[in-house]
Amino acid sequence: MTQMIYSSLLRRYHSIVNFCFNFSLLLAVSSSILKYRKLKVAHSEEQENKPNVSGIPYPSLLLEAWKPMSVGHKRRWWDCIALPFDVESSDEVAFRMQIRELAFTSLQLLKAAIFDEECKSLFSLDIYGHIIGMFELNNLDLVVASPVEDYFLYIDDLPYPEKKEAEEIARPFLDALGDDYAVCCQGTAFYPLQSCMNHSCSPNAKAFKREEDRDGQATIIALKPISKGEEVTISYVDEDLRFEERQALLADYGFKCRCPKCLEEEP
Protein backbone atom coordinates (compact mmCIF):
# COMPACT_ATOMS: atom_id res chain seq x y z
CA MET A 1 0.00 0.00 0.00
CA THR A 2 2.79 2.40 0.96
CA GLN A 3 4.63 1.40 -2.20
CA MET A 4 1.59 2.34 -4.26
CA ILE A 5 1.56 5.82 -2.72
CA TYR A 6 5.29 6.12 -3.29
CA SER A 7 5.10 5.20 -6.98
CA SER A 8 2.33 7.72 -7.52
CA LEU A 9 4.26 10.41 -5.64
CA LEU A 10 7.31 9.85 -7.81
CA ARG A 11 5.25 10.82 -10.83
CA ARG A 12 3.72 13.74 -8.94
CA TYR A 13 7.17 14.87 -7.78
CA HIS A 14 8.33 15.09 -11.38
CA SER A 15 5.18 17.07 -12.11
CA ILE A 16 5.54 19.55 -9.24
CA VAL A 17 9.22 20.27 -9.90
CA ASN A 18 8.35 21.01 -13.51
CA PHE A 19 5.38 23.02 -12.28
CA CYS A 20 7.62 25.20 -10.12
CA PHE A 21 9.53 26.33 -13.16
CA ASN A 22 6.59 26.23 -15.51
CA PHE A 23 6.50 29.67 -17.13
CA SER A 24 2.92 30.35 -16.15
CA LEU A 25 3.43 29.56 -12.47
CA LEU A 26 6.69 31.48 -12.21
CA LEU A 27 5.06 34.37 -14.03
CA ALA A 28 2.21 34.50 -11.52
CA VAL A 29 4.61 35.46 -8.73
CA SER A 30 7.37 37.28 -10.61
CA SER A 31 4.97 39.46 -12.61
CA SER A 32 3.21 40.48 -9.40
CA ILE A 33 6.55 41.47 -7.87
CA LEU A 34 7.52 43.50 -10.92
CA LYS A 35 4.13 45.20 -11.03
CA TYR A 36 4.40 45.98 -7.32
CA ARG A 37 7.80 47.62 -7.83
CA LYS A 38 6.46 49.77 -10.66
CA LEU A 39 3.45 50.81 -8.61
CA LYS A 40 5.70 51.60 -5.66
CA VAL A 41 7.94 53.86 -7.77
CA ALA A 42 4.95 55.68 -9.23
CA HIS A 43 3.39 56.03 -5.78
CA SER A 44 6.63 57.33 -4.27
CA GLU A 45 6.94 59.98 -6.95
CA GLU A 46 3.42 61.17 -6.18
CA GLN A 47 3.79 60.99 -2.41
CA GLU A 48 7.33 62.23 -1.79
CA ASN A 49 6.20 64.24 1.20
CA LYS A 50 3.94 61.52 2.61
CA PRO A 51 6.17 58.70 3.89
CA ASN A 52 4.64 55.36 4.70
CA VAL A 53 4.68 55.50 8.50
CA SER A 54 2.98 52.16 9.09
CA GLY A 55 6.19 50.19 8.66
CA ILE A 56 4.49 47.98 6.05
CA PRO A 57 5.81 48.66 2.53
CA TYR A 58 2.70 49.78 0.68
CA PRO A 59 0.53 46.70 1.31
CA SER A 60 -2.34 48.07 -0.75
CA LEU A 61 -0.02 48.29 -3.76
CA LEU A 62 0.88 44.63 -3.38
CA LEU A 63 -2.81 43.74 -3.37
CA GLU A 64 -3.26 45.83 -6.52
CA ALA A 65 -0.35 44.03 -8.18
CA TRP A 66 -1.87 40.68 -7.25
CA LYS A 67 -5.31 41.42 -8.76
CA PRO A 68 -4.83 39.59 -12.09
CA MET A 69 -4.10 36.40 -10.15
CA SER A 70 -7.01 36.83 -7.75
CA VAL A 71 -9.80 36.15 -10.25
CA GLY A 72 -9.32 32.39 -10.61
CA HIS A 73 -11.10 29.82 -8.46
CA LYS A 74 -8.48 28.75 -5.95
CA ARG A 75 -8.24 25.79 -3.62
CA ARG A 76 -4.96 24.61 -2.23
CA TRP A 77 -3.30 22.14 -4.55
CA TRP A 78 -3.08 19.32 -2.03
CA ASP A 79 -6.79 19.75 -1.28
CA CYS A 80 -8.12 19.89 -4.83
CA ILE A 81 -5.89 17.46 -6.70
CA ALA A 82 -7.75 14.34 -7.78
CA LEU A 83 -6.77 11.14 -5.99
CA PRO A 84 -4.67 9.00 -8.39
CA PHE A 85 -6.16 5.68 -9.39
CA ASP A 86 -3.36 3.73 -7.69
CA VAL A 87 -3.91 5.32 -4.25
CA GLU A 88 -6.50 3.72 -1.98
CA SER A 89 -9.08 6.00 -0.37
CA SER A 90 -7.80 4.88 3.04
CA ASP A 91 -4.43 6.43 2.15
CA GLU A 92 -5.85 9.74 0.95
CA VAL A 93 -4.82 11.77 4.02
CA ALA A 94 -1.24 10.50 3.84
CA PHE A 95 -1.13 11.16 0.09
CA ARG A 96 -2.32 14.76 0.45
CA MET A 97 0.14 15.42 3.27
CA GLN A 98 3.01 14.22 1.09
CA ILE A 99 1.77 16.37 -1.79
CA ARG A 100 1.84 19.32 0.63
CA GLU A 101 5.44 18.49 1.53
CA LEU A 102 6.35 18.38 -2.16
CA ALA A 103 4.77 21.80 -2.63
CA PHE A 104 6.89 23.09 0.27
CA THR A 105 10.06 21.75 -1.37
CA SER A 106 9.07 23.35 -4.65
CA LEU A 107 8.39 26.66 -2.90
CA GLN A 108 11.92 26.70 -1.48
CA LEU A 109 13.30 26.47 -5.02
CA LEU A 110 11.14 29.39 -6.09
CA LYS A 111 12.19 31.47 -3.07
CA ALA A 112 15.85 30.79 -3.79
CA ALA A 113 15.35 32.15 -7.29
CA ILE A 114 13.20 35.28 -6.89
CA PHE A 115 12.43 35.96 -3.21
CA ASP A 116 11.62 39.60 -2.42
CA GLU A 117 11.41 40.65 1.24
CA GLU A 118 8.76 43.30 0.59
CA CYS A 119 6.59 40.74 -1.18
CA LYS A 120 7.22 37.90 1.26
CA SER A 121 3.50 37.31 1.75
CA LEU A 122 3.42 35.92 -1.81
CA PHE A 123 5.88 33.23 -0.75
CA SER A 124 3.83 31.63 2.01
CA LEU A 125 3.00 27.95 1.57
CA ASP A 126 -0.72 28.73 1.74
CA ILE A 127 -0.54 31.29 -1.09
CA TYR A 128 1.71 29.02 -3.13
CA GLY A 129 -0.70 26.12 -2.67
CA HIS A 130 -3.55 28.31 -3.89
CA ILE A 131 -1.56 29.39 -6.96
CA ILE A 132 -0.88 25.79 -7.98
CA GLY A 133 -4.49 24.91 -7.19
CA MET A 134 -5.63 27.77 -9.41
CA PHE A 135 -3.73 26.30 -12.35
CA GLU A 136 -4.94 22.81 -11.46
CA LEU A 137 -8.58 23.91 -11.68
CA ASN A 138 -8.44 26.68 -14.31
CA ASN A 139 -5.72 25.67 -16.75
CA LEU A 140 -6.19 25.33 -20.48
CA ASP A 141 -3.82 23.50 -22.81
CA LEU A 142 -1.93 25.69 -25.24
CA VAL A 143 0.76 25.58 -27.89
CA VAL A 144 3.19 28.40 -28.67
CA ALA A 145 5.81 28.76 -31.36
CA SER A 146 9.36 27.80 -30.43
CA PRO A 147 11.19 30.85 -29.02
CA VAL A 148 14.46 29.20 -30.08
CA GLU A 149 13.35 29.16 -33.71
CA ASP A 150 12.36 32.83 -33.45
CA TYR A 151 15.81 33.60 -32.04
CA PHE A 152 17.62 31.96 -34.96
CA LEU A 153 15.35 33.73 -37.44
CA TYR A 154 16.32 36.97 -35.71
CA ILE A 155 20.00 36.09 -36.12
CA ASP A 156 19.50 35.46 -39.84
CA ASP A 157 18.33 39.06 -40.28
CA LEU A 158 21.36 40.62 -38.57
CA PRO A 159 24.01 42.46 -40.62
CA TYR A 160 27.05 40.31 -41.39
CA PRO A 161 29.51 41.15 -38.56
CA GLU A 162 26.87 40.78 -35.83
CA LYS A 163 25.36 37.71 -37.51
CA LYS A 164 28.69 35.87 -37.61
CA GLU A 165 29.39 36.59 -33.93
CA ALA A 166 25.87 35.55 -32.88
CA GLU A 167 26.07 32.32 -34.90
CA GLU A 168 29.37 31.39 -33.24
CA ILE A 169 27.81 31.89 -29.80
CA ALA A 170 24.58 30.07 -30.65
CA ARG A 171 26.12 27.19 -32.62
CA PRO A 172 26.69 24.86 -29.60
CA PHE A 173 23.05 25.27 -28.57
CA LEU A 174 21.79 24.59 -32.09
CA ASP A 175 23.99 21.50 -32.40
CA ALA A 176 22.72 20.21 -29.05
CA LEU A 177 19.07 20.73 -30.00
CA GLY A 178 19.35 19.35 -33.52
CA ASP A 179 16.07 19.38 -35.42
CA ASP A 180 14.15 19.87 -32.16
CA TYR A 181 14.98 23.57 -32.07
CA ALA A 182 11.83 24.31 -34.09
CA VAL A 183 9.47 22.12 -32.03
CA CYS A 184 6.55 24.09 -30.62
CA CYS A 185 6.24 24.43 -26.85
CA GLN A 186 3.23 22.76 -25.26
CA GLY A 187 1.93 23.50 -21.79
CA THR A 188 -0.92 25.03 -19.85
CA ALA A 189 -2.02 28.60 -19.30
CA PHE A 190 -4.29 30.62 -17.04
CA TYR A 191 -6.83 32.81 -18.84
CA PRO A 192 -8.67 35.24 -16.51
CA LEU A 193 -11.80 35.47 -18.68
CA GLN A 194 -12.19 31.72 -19.01
CA SER A 195 -11.56 31.20 -15.28
CA CYS A 196 -14.52 33.45 -14.42
CA MET A 197 -16.99 31.33 -16.39
CA ASN A 198 -19.26 29.00 -14.48
CA HIS A 199 -19.78 25.35 -15.33
CA SER A 200 -22.72 23.66 -16.98
CA CYS A 201 -23.01 20.10 -18.24
CA SER A 202 -25.00 21.60 -21.09
CA PRO A 203 -22.82 24.64 -21.84
CA ASN A 204 -23.54 27.32 -24.40
CA ALA A 205 -19.84 28.00 -25.08
CA LYS A 206 -16.41 26.42 -24.87
CA ALA A 207 -12.79 27.51 -24.62
CA PHE A 208 -11.37 26.76 -28.03
CA LYS A 209 -7.73 26.21 -28.96
CA ARG A 210 -6.92 25.13 -32.49
CA GLU A 211 -3.91 22.88 -33.04
CA GLU A 212 -2.54 25.23 -35.69
CA ASP A 213 -2.57 28.26 -33.38
CA ARG A 214 0.89 29.08 -32.08
CA ASP A 215 0.30 32.45 -30.44
CA GLY A 216 -0.67 31.25 -26.96
CA GLN A 217 -4.15 32.73 -27.24
CA ALA A 218 -7.46 30.98 -26.71
CA THR A 219 -10.95 31.83 -27.94
CA ILE A 220 -14.35 31.39 -26.34
CA ILE A 221 -16.82 30.26 -29.01
CA ALA A 222 -20.59 29.87 -28.75
CA LEU A 223 -22.05 26.38 -29.10
CA LYS A 224 -25.62 27.64 -29.48
CA PRO A 225 -27.43 30.98 -29.74
CA ILE A 226 -26.91 33.06 -26.58
CA SER A 227 -29.53 35.63 -25.64
CA LYS A 228 -28.69 39.09 -24.34
CA GLY A 229 -28.19 38.89 -20.58
CA GLU A 230 -27.86 35.09 -20.60
CA GLU A 231 -24.90 33.71 -18.66
CA VAL A 232 -22.08 32.28 -20.75
CA THR A 233 -21.13 28.84 -19.40
CA ILE A 234 -18.51 26.25 -20.27
CA SER A 235 -18.05 22.66 -19.16
CA TYR A 236 -15.23 21.80 -16.77
CA VAL A 237 -15.54 18.09 -17.61
CA ASP A 238 -16.59 15.89 -20.51
CA GLU A 239 -20.32 16.54 -20.62
CA ASP A 240 -20.92 13.25 -22.46
CA LEU A 241 -19.97 11.24 -19.38
CA ARG A 242 -22.65 9.63 -17.24
CA PHE A 243 -24.20 11.68 -14.43
CA GLU A 244 -22.28 9.87 -11.67
CA GLU A 245 -18.94 10.27 -13.46
CA ARG A 246 -19.48 13.98 -14.06
CA GLN A 247 -20.41 14.59 -10.43
CA ALA A 248 -17.34 12.69 -9.22
CA LEU A 249 -15.02 14.81 -11.38
CA LEU A 250 -16.74 18.06 -10.41
CA ALA A 251 -16.28 17.24 -6.72
CA ASP A 252 -12.68 18.42 -7.13
CA TYR A 253 -14.07 21.90 -7.81
CA GLY A 254 -15.97 21.91 -4.54
CA PHE A 255 -19.55 21.90 -5.79
CA LYS A 256 -22.36 19.62 -6.93
CA CYS A 257 -23.67 20.55 -10.34
CA ARG A 258 -27.37 21.46 -10.44
CA CYS A 259 -27.60 22.43 -14.09
CA PRO A 260 -30.76 21.44 -16.03
CA LYS A 261 -29.04 18.39 -17.51
CA CYS A 262 -27.98 17.09 -14.09
CA LEU A 263 -31.40 17.75 -12.56
CA GLU A 264 -32.97 15.77 -15.38
CA GLU A 265 -30.53 12.85 -15.11
CA GLU A 266 -30.22 12.69 -11.33
CA PRO A 267 -31.54 9.34 -10.03
Results as ranks from 00 to 15, higher is better:
residue 229 G to D: 02
residue 20 C to P: 00
residue 215 D to Y: 08
residue 224 K to A: 14
residue 26 L to R: 15
residue 143 V to I: 11
residue 266 E to R: 06
residue 81 I to E: 01
residue 73 H to R: 11
residue 9 L to V: 09
residue 148 V to D: 11
residue 39 L to K: 05
residue 77 W to L: 15
residue 2 T to A: 11
residue 130 H to N: 08
residue 60 S to H: 14
residue 19 F to C: 06
residue 37 R to P: 02
residue 201 C to L: 02
residue 133 G to W: 00
residue 13 Y to L: 13
residue 144 V to I: 13
residue 77 W to C: 06
residue 122 L to E: 03
residue 159 P to E: 05
residue 115 F to C: 05
residue 166 A to P: 02
residue 100 R to Y: 05
residue 77 W to A: 05
residue 120 K to R: 15
residue 259 C to Y: 06
residue 218 A to W: 09
residue 196 C to Y: 11
residue 109 L to D: 10
residue 40 K to Y: 09
residue 33 I to S: 06
residue 228 K to G: 06
residue 182 A to H: 00
residue 170 A to H: 02
residue 27 L to K: 13
residue 82 A to Q: 04
residue 57 P to F: 08
residue 152 F to D: 12
residue 30 S to T: 13
residue 157 D to C: 06
residue 145 A to T: 07
residue 146 S to Q: 07
residue 48 E to I: 05
residue 129 G to Y: 00
residue 10 L to W: 06
residue 2 T to R: 12
residue 18 N to R: 08
residue 47 Q to C: 10
residue 26 L to H: 14
residue 5 I to E: 12
residue 215 D to C: 05
residue 2 T to F: 08
residue 119 C to H: 04
residue 57 P to N: 06
residue 67 K to G: 05
residue 155 I to E: 14
residue 235 S to M: 00
residue 245 E to C: 02
residue 95 F to V: 00
residue 118 E to P: 05
residue 163 K to G: 01
residue 16 I to N: 00
residue 262 C to R: 15
residue 72 G to P: 04
residue 1 M to R: 14
residue 39 L to R: 03
residue 250 L to N: 09
residue 199 H to P: 05
residue 163 K to I: 00
residue 101 E to C: 09
residue 90 S to T: 11
residue 143 V to Q: 14
residue 15 S to E: 06
residue 204 N to E: 00
residue 1 M to F: 07
residue 168 E to H: 08
residue 41 V to E: 13
residue 225 P to N: 10
residue 9 L to Q: 04
residue 251 A to K: 10
residue 29 V to S: 03
residue 89 S to R: 15
residue 208 F to P: 07
residue 153 L to S: 13
residue 123 F to N: 05
residue 150 D to T: 14
residue 144 V to M: 13
residue 224 K to R: 15
residue 189 A to D: 02
residue 155 I to D: 11
residue 11 R to P: 01
residue 50 K to Y: 09
residue 21 F to M: 06
residue 220 I to M: 04
residue 220 I to H: 12
residue 242 R to T: 10
